[in-house]
Simulated scan of single mutants.
Amino acid sequence: MNLKQLIEAPEKYIKNSFMIGFAGTSYPLLFLKKIRDYIQLQCGLKMLYIDMQDAELAQIRAQLEMSFLGHQNIYWLGDLSTLSLKNYMQWMTYLSNYKGPHSILFFTTKEFSDKNMKLISLPEQIDYIFFKDLLSLWSPEDRERLRYTAELIFKKVGVLSLDHVMQMVEYAQVLGSARSSFLNDWLTSIIKPESSLFNLSGALFAGDKRSFLKQWRQLQKDYEFPFWMSYFSEQFFRAYYYISCKKNNNHIEARKIGFRLPFSFLQKDWKKWEQSIFQDAHQRIVDIDFNLKNGGSEIMLEQVFLLFYT
């Protein structure tokens, strides 16, 4: 099950599923609130919230297992990964065996796989194509304005976190004719520059020489050389093991190691490469670090990039 399926048919999944978990590397507060509001509106069910920090399992089992005149509610348990390990395991065991009558939603940053639960993986970053699948979250009269503004923003930043998308929507609904000047003057102050780094490595891992070199010239001086060494070292390391996990159908571990890798690479570009190229690139970073301490040149880093577009 994925996010697009839930948005397209919330009643189908909520009313026929007792357990849906959202999983991600961090808790997207604004986005999950929007999802909850949308589900409640579309399904016409009451949504109740349980404070998991103060809740004892034994105290609320009766609430979750009892229904007044057969009425179904939706319970939101929040971020279960904030619980102690003992409490987390107790809750996951209980939820795995829960048979209704209500629907329960929760979020976690911890990895799990359970055939009795539907799991929706939330991406760390999304692009414009993914955003278009989210448009149904808003009213029909808002969608065209959001689509137009989103297209402009994504052209500038490439990818956004889910909560940045929620911020973007708030601005899009009030900008009006000032949209273009606002985006030119203020966008980079609102959206963290990390998205530019995702675009940079995304272009490199796509083998797009022209796009990569253009972005590299723009960003190169924004960070000190040690940052770039650390950044690309981590990117190559994660990419190597991500490909390994994907080839072995180890999707849970792939999602773990894929954190901070560019969205396009996670979706499709990983298929373009053999693992060995990232192993080679990572080793060259190690060699450059050694050589720099012995009189080497920083220009050697750009020779590493040649692996991906020659």
Rank of each mutant, 00 (worst) to 15 (best):
L6H: 03
G70E: 06
K118H: 13
E194H: 12
Q59F: 14
R238V: 02
D79F: 07
E234N: 13
R238S: 07
Y88H: 02
P193R: 13
Q42G: 06
Y94A: 00
D142R: 10
L197E: 03
L80P: 02
L204Y: 03
S81H: 01
A203I: 03
L219A: 09
N199E: 14
P262Y: 00
K34T: 11
T25C: 12
E11Y: 12
L6V: 11
N199R: 11
L6T: 05
T149E: 05
M52W: 12
A62M: 14
R145K: 12
Y128L: 08
R61A: 12
I243N: 02
E194L: 14
A55V: 04
E11S: 15
L146D: 05
I288D: 00
T25R: 09
Q5R: 10
S177W: 13
S244L: 13
Q167P: 02
I14G: 01
I74S: 02
A58P: 09
L122S: 00
Q53F: 15
R36N: 15
N2G: 05
K209I: 07
F265R: 00
E253Q: 15
F308I: 00
K46F: 08
T149W: 08
G207I: 02
I191N: 01
L105M: 04
K247A: 04
W186M: 15
K192L: 09
Q5K: 12
D208W: 10
N73T: 08
I277E: 01
S113F: 09
A58I: 07
W270M: 01
A203Y: 01
G296H: 05
A206C: 06
Y309M: 06
E111N: 10
W138M: 06
N184T: 15
F131K: 01
K246M: 15
L301P: 03
L30M: 15
M229K: 11
Y88E: 01
Q215V: 05
L85C: 07
I20F: 05
N73S: 12
L266P: 04
F154T: 01
K4Q: 13
L41P: 13
F130H: 07
L307C: 06
Q275T: 08
